[in-house]
């Protein structure tokens, strides 16, 4: 692992019975970099996301993370409290379905403020002000701060989830199909928002998507997975415009040009 790598995985293996989910997967991520993991359903991309983020243990292999103090930590050897603390401060996780992450019975402000409160913020006014500032960053009107998420549209829910995730200024965010399940026009706006936030805040992102157009617009680099194996990886536009591996050529030729 290089001196400045943020996240580094070596030799990840995971099998579910006869199914190989990860087969000797290596992966590196640098600060501020967006890495897309693409492939069809069942290719192991979501499993890889879960293993990289410590939510699922590999059968062998190691995931290193450089914490804010510059120390290397083995994600899967971390004590549970430390990993949970990492997940609610320096890391974020954006789910495909925002309802999996949001508290639907809690106001937008409470949803955004929760991570701050979990970190020990104890000033109501400050928490609320911060929540409003983040709602505005994700283009939700400040006057929605006291509304319940159930009154929000799908695109707003996803933006609320992003605000809730970014409020603690994480350095690394894992995203699982963040634009999946949204209307095309809503997707576009969300993509632009994610792109500009990630760029402006210098956040590193591991992004799982089956949508090559999403990978093209957001990611610096892309990893193509097939049956648990990384068959090709490199610069996003190079992999998509000049695919080398038969599977990547098939993937690229199977979609309408974006």
């Amino acid at each position: 692992m290089n001196d400045d790598t943020l996240l580094s995985a070596r030799g990840l293996n995971l099998r579910f019975g006869a199914v190989t989910a990860l087969d000797q997967v290596d992966c590196d991520l640098w600060p501020g970099e967006v890495l897309a993991i693409v492939g069809e359903s069942g290719s192991g991309k979501t499993t890889l996301l879960n293993v990289l983020s410590g939510r699922m243990a590999p059968q062998s292999g190691v995931v290193w993370y450089r914490d804010p103090n510059g120390h290397l930590v083995d994600v899967h050897a971390m004590p549970a409290p430390a990993l949970r603390a990492l997940h609610r401060s320096d890391w974020g996780f954006v789910h495909q379905n925002p309802r999996d992450n949001l508290r639907m019975g809690v106001t937008a402000g409470g949803n955004v403020g929760e991570r701050l409160m979990a970190q020990g913020s104890r000033h109501y006014g400050n928490i609320r002000a911060e929540a409003i500032a983040w709602l505005e960053q994700v283009e939700i009107d400040a006057d929605r701060v006291d509304h319940l998420p159930r009154t929000f549209s799908g695109g707003m829910l996803q933006r609320l989830q992003i605000a809730r995730t970014l409020v603690t200024h994480p350095r690394l965010v894992f995203m699982d199909e963040p634009t999946g399940g949204l209307d095309v026009s809503v997707q576009a706006r969300l993509l632009d928002l994610i792109r500009s936030l990630v760029r402006r805040l210098g956040i590193a992102v591991v992004l799982v998507t089956h949508d090559l157009a999403v990978a093209r617009l957001l990611a610096h680099r892309v990893m193509v997975m097939q049956r648990g194996v990384v068959v090709e990886s490199g610069l996003t536009d190079q992999v998509l415009d000049d695919p080398q591996h038969p599977y990547t050529q098939l993937l690229v030729s199977s979609v309408l040009s974006a």
């Binding site: 490199g234 190079q238 415009d241 000049d242 080398q244």
Partner: peptide, 9 residues
């Protein structure tokens, strides 16, 4: 031109 830019490998 695309190779020069790294767009083609």
């Amino acid at each position: 031109l695309r190779s020069l830019y790294g767009n083609y490998r």
